[in-house]
Design a protein around this nucleic acid. Structure first.
Length: 714
RNA sequence: GCCACUUUAGCUCAGCGGUAGAGCGAUGCUUUCGUAAAGCAUAGGUCCAGGGUUCAAAUCCCUGAAGUGGCUCCA
């Protein structure tokens, strides 16, 4: 006799086992009709699932009472849509093997292995969608049935789908007591069936609108050495109107994409003749970047940083010392080998493999030093080569830290002058896979607003706090509120980390305390630490919904040991410093990309490449327009004048599309009174007229204070 | 790197076996204008590159490059 407790506390009792459908029916037939599923003690289930014991139950409908869409209901609907798509795809490509098809926040996908002779192409979408529509129109019930494990495995094996066999085996391994279930889209034995845990909506007709979105390749189990699968993305809603709205929003977001705006506003250029993933900053984009650099430069001076400059390359030996080479060689540009060495190797008939072996070799002296300092066999004997076999060379720098370590080491340090804070807008180069490159957000050459803080153990918490306050100032000034904070901690089960347990505990505690003091939610992610220390990352989403890491603060116990850095303590003995790596923007390229999307190209005045445009009504006021322009230039404002012979409407339209904050319309009336007619970006109407002097003063204040909003008023 | 798609004028795109098109932009002329595009004219192309099929290729086939969406990776 289960007693069902509803969300409002009301209790219903039944004579025997009931289903969600029975509960809904008892509340009201309308609810029973709208119900997609049921939540029993917090667990989402099929509407028809039996409820045997007392439970807290809520009925899942698509629409919530407040008019919003229920997240659980939407996921159920999309999971069901994935089954419908799978059935449709199997009709179009009979030999395909289904692998795994989960719902997502924006839709769903199904990983499928297609026969090599019959890959899925976008040209197949129309046929798939037609088949999906037919399945939805048939309004077949999703029917769950359990099968004994042995029978299930035998059945899947006889179907010859090793992926589903694997799914079943994994499900058994994860929970040996739970039954394996199939869902038939209709009648078992007659209609399409898929091994699936569920839950599903009652019938295919409840999926109102469904669309195949795109194709991608994926790897089985996410392992690039395993089978390559085709991932088919789709999305589904309860109604066509919602699908249309979703597609429209997607299109609108696309217009805010930094690559689109960057092209339109001529902020940057990527040229395949220069190279993939290499950014050319145009004059307009350079202004944005330079203003950001000036801004952070001022903050750094306030925090007692000192600026350094270092070259774009360094010797291979430097990176063998730091450990970057060859450990990370797959994501670095290939080494630059000296010409003499290359010629000699070529003459001696040295093979490429042998050459790489010798390039990666380490001298006995270097190996002994590092092994002694790290107290482990950090450099294994097989990498040690006789000096006369070593090949010298250089690398484009993948990190700035080795150079900065050498600057620190170049002079003696006392505990009295710690910490040393060395800052540099340092450009680094990394060999990103070609498929990963993406506008400004993933590139092969980028400039970090980098700094390394060489500090004592005691100074770590304070220095981390200082770094975070820097990030906070930046985000606040730019009005960026939509970011999340991730604290990367060590994986307790791994031994890949360097440094002692005590130091790690202290550093992790310092990071967590600092993150907590930020006043924004943060996640702790074990296993996400760098091998040399914990870190705090700032992550934002782009218009397409992808995560990008911007600012980062990392504690490093490793570098000072490898470079044998020290300072003299109060005991007059040498001590190891700890290094904090930090880059509040992360990379200037990525940050600017995210910033373009954040502002949709409409930058605050201090950042906008062109701050004011003067628009003479006709040639008759060209002379006055020139005077206005000169007055603004004298005040340091970035201003141009549109002397074209367009009508004023045309000039306004063009300037508005270029997102210029302030337009000054000047005609005979303004010239007479020494005034300007103001038009403010984002406002549909003329803001009125004001004296030129007043405008110059107002905009200068706005720029000087780096205000996020347009504040000039008539 | 993997899979699919894309690549035509500065930009956005049409053309899809018969020899290059539009809109915007640029330039020139007319207009001298008061708040989101006045009119006319002109210039502008190795149709991504290289091979092939064909009487004929921007168009069909092959190879490569770059871009896009995902996968994997990201010190």
């Amino acid at each position: 006799m289960p007693v069902i407790t509803l969300p409002d506390g009301k209790q219903l009792s039944f004579d025997g086992p009931v289903t969600g459908r029975d509960v809904a029916m008892k509340i009201g037939p309308r609810l029973a009709k709208d119900a997609l599923g049921v939540k029993v003690n917090g667990e989402v289930k099929d509407l028809g699932a039996p409820i045997a014991a007392d439970a807290k139950v809520s009925i899942i409908t698509y629409k919530q009472r407040d008019g919003g869409v229920d997240a659980d209901g939407l996921l159920m609907l999309r999971h069901s849509a994935a089954h419908i798509m799978a059935e449709a795809i199997l009709r179009v490509v009979p030999g395909a093997q289904l692998v795994y098809g989960p719902p997502l926040a924006t839709g769903f996908y199904y990983d499928i292995r297609f026969p090599d002779s019959r890959p899925l192409k976008e040209g197949d979408f129309a046929a798939i969608e037609e088949a999906m529509k037919a399945i939805v129109a048939e309004d077949r019930a999703f029917t769950r049935h359990e099968q004994a494990k042995a029978d299930c495995l035998a059945r899947l094996k006889s179907e010859g789908n090793k992926y589903k066999v694997d799914n079943a085996e994994r499900a058994i391994a994860a929970d040996g007591s739970a039954p394996l279930t199939f869902y038939a889209t209709g009648e078992p034995g007659k209609n399409f069936e898929d091994l699936c845990r569920g839950p599903h909506v009652p019938s295919t007709g409840r999926v109102g609108a469904i669309k195949v979105m795109s194709l991608a390749s994926s790897y089985w189990h996410g392992d690039e050495n395993s089978d390559r699968l085709t991932r088919v993305y789709g999305t589904a809603f309860a109604s066509q109107a919602e699908l249309d709205e979703f597609l429209k929003q997607k299109e609108e977001a696309g217009k805010r994409d930094h690559r689109v705006i960057g092209e339109k506003l001529r902020l940057f250029h990527i040229d395949k003749d220069v190279g993939q993933g290499l950014i050319l900053w145009t004059p307009a984009g350079s202004i944005v970047r330079k203003e950001l650099q000036n801004f952070i430069g001022g903050e750094l001076r306030k925090q007692g940083y000192t600026e350094v400059f270092t070259p774009h390359i360094g010797s291979l030996e430097l990176y063998k010392t730091s450990g970057h080479f060859p450990y990370y060689k797959d994501s670095q540009f290939a080494p630059i080998i000296e010409r003499n060495a290359l010629e000699e190797l070529s003459k001696s008939g040295c093979s490429c493999a042998e050459m790489m072996n010798r390039v990666e070799g380490v001298s006995a002296r270097l190996a002994a030093g590092i092994n002694e300092r790290t107290g482990a066999q950090t450099i294994t004997p097989d990498r040690v080569k006789p000096d006369d076999q070593l090949i010298e060379g250089f690398m484009l720098k993948p990190m700035n830290c080795p150079h900065h370590a050498k600057i620190f080491a170049s002079s003696p340090h006392s505990y009295r002058d710690m910490p040393a804070r060395l800052a540099e807008f340092g450009t680094v180069y990394r060999w990103e896979q070609s498929g990963e490159l993406n506008g400004l957000t993933r590139v092969r050459g980028f400039t970090q607003d980098d700094a390394h803080l060489f500090c004592t153990e005691d100074q770590i918490p304070g220095e981390i706090q200082g770094c975070l306050s820097l990030v906070k100032v930046i985000f606040a000034t730019l009005g960026m509120k939509d970011y999340r904070v991730r604290v990367g901690l060590r994986d307790p089960d791994s031994n890949k980390y360097t440094g002692t347990k005590e130091n790690w505990d202290k550093a992790e505690a310092a990071c967590l305390a600092a993150a907590a003091s930020l006043g924004v939610p943060f996640s702790q992610e074990p296993g996400e630490a760098a091998f040399y220390g914990p870190k705090i990352d700032f992550v934002v989403k782009d218009v397409i919904g992808r995560d990008w890491q911007l600012g980062t603060v990392q504690v490093d116990y490793n570098m000072a040991i490898r470079f044998d850095l020290s300072y003299t303590g109060p005991d007059n003995k040498p001590h190891r410093p700890v290094v904090i790596h930090r880059a509040p923007f992360g990379s200037m390229e990525r940050f600017c990309g995210v910033l373009i999307e954040h502002f949709a190209g409409a930058f605050p005045t201090w950042l906008n490449p062109e701050q004011v445009r003067v628009l003479p009504i006709s040639e008759k006021t060209n002379e006055y327009a020139a005077k206005v322009e000169a007055a603004l230039k004298a005040a340091g404002v970035r201003v141009t004048t549109d002397y074209g012979n367009d009508r004023i409407q045309g000039k306004i339209k063009v300037a508005a599309e270029q997102k210029i904050p302030y337009l000054l319309i000047v005609g005979p009336r303004d010239a007479e009174s020494g005034a300007v007619s103001l038009r403010i970006r984002g406002q549909e109407k003329d803001a009125g007229s004001m004296p030129l002097d007043a405008f110059v003063a107002a905009i200068s204040a706005e720029i000087g204070e780096r205000r996020a909003e347009l504040t000039v008023k008539v």
